[in-house]
Amino acid sequence: MEFAKKIMTEKAEKLNGKAAMLGMFALVGAYYFTGQILPGIF
């Protein structure tokens, strides 16, 4: 458990949240411009 506490820091959690939000905005943008959830697939 001590090992996980060193890796899962507050800075790492914030970075992960920012990356997730960037992905969500990319999905919304792709849907807005193409009308498809994953352009070329769906």
Rank of each mutant, 00 (worst) to 15 (best):
M1R: 10
M1A: 15
M1K: 01
M1S: 14
E2W: 09
E2A: 07
E2K: 14
F3M: 14
F3T: 08
F3W: 10
A4I: 11
A4M: 03
A4H: 12
A4P: 00
K5S: 06
K5F: 12
K6T: 07
K6P: 01
I7L: 05
I7S: 03
I7G: 00
M8G: 09
M8Y: 08
T9K: 12
T9Q: 06
T9Y: 00
E10D: 13
K11W: 00
K11A: 15
K11R: 08
A12F: 12
A12R: 11
A12N: 05
E13I: 11
E13V: 14
E13N: 10
E13H: 14
E13C: 02
K14Y: 09
K14Q: 11
K14H: 04
K14A: 02
L15V: 08
L15S: 06
L15F: 09
L15C: 01
L15T: 08
N16F: 14
N16V: 04
N16H: 05
G17Q: 15
G17T: 12
G17L: 12
K18R: 14
K18I: 15
K18H: 13
K18S: 02
K18V: 08
K18F: 01
A19C: 09
A19I: 10
A20W: 01
A20K: 05
A20V: 08
M21H: 11
M21A: 15
L22F: 12
L22E: 06
L22P: 00
L22I: 15
L22T: 04
L22D: 13
G23C: 10
M24H: 05
M24L: 15
M24R: 10
M24N: 07
F25D: 02
A26W: 06
A26E: 14
A26S: 09
A26L: 10
L27N: 13
V28C: 05
V28L: 14
V28Y: 08
V28W: 02
V28I: 13
G29C: 06
G29E: 06
G29Y: 08
A30W: 02
A30K: 02
Y31T: 11
Y31W: 15
Y31I: 11
Y31Q: 13
Y31M: 13
Y32W: 08
Y32C: 08
Y32H: 03
F33R: 13
F33A: 03
F33G: 00
F33Y: 10
F33S: 06
T34G: 02
G35T: 04
G35C: 02
G35L: 05
G35E: 10
G35V: 13
G35H: 04
Q36G: 00
Q36C: 00
Q36M: 07
Q36E: 14
I37Y: 01
I37H: 04
I37M: 14
L38D: 07
L38G: 02
L38N: 12
L38H: 02
P39G: 01
P39C: 03
P39V: 04
G40W: 07
G40N: 01
G40C: 01
G40T: 07
G40R: 04
G40Y: 03
G40L: 01
G40E: 00
I41N: 08
I41G: 06
I41P: 01
I41A: 09
F42T: 15
F42M: 06
